[in-house]
Amino acid sequence: MREGFTCQVKCMNFLKKSLEKYLPGKGITKRITPDQLELKKFEDLEHYKDVLYFCGKCGQCRYVFQEAYWSRVCPSGELKKFEAYYLGGKKPSAMGSFKR
């Protein structure tokens, strides 16, 4: 177990070092994920364009993991069922408006 522990400490040190190296400006300088974007209301359409293109229609928005259970959560999708009524369907429709 002692050998394993040493190995674990080395592993941790390496990971810490790699994060330090790439995060504060040398390598990866910026972390942007959709949930970190500031979604202001009532902006020009252009402001929302990139957000729409994040969507890969993965279906994640149809479910939520809450209190240890996966559950379906999309009201309009569950009501009408067709893909167009889930967020993954609404977003492509919104994308269409940018192309007009």
Binding site: M1, E3, G4, F5, T6, C7, Q8, K10, C11, M12, F14, L15, K16, L19
Partner: peptide
């Protein structure tokens, strides 16, 4: 679980890799 963990750490180290359990890593 402990015996299996020990064997995994031994093998990885012997082969020149690094290993840590994810509970420890995740705290970073």
């Amino acid at each position: 679980m402990e015996a299996k963990s020990e064997a995994i750490m031994k093998i990885v180290e012997e082969e020149g890799g690094l290993v840590a359990d994810i509970e420890t890593v995740i705290n970073m």
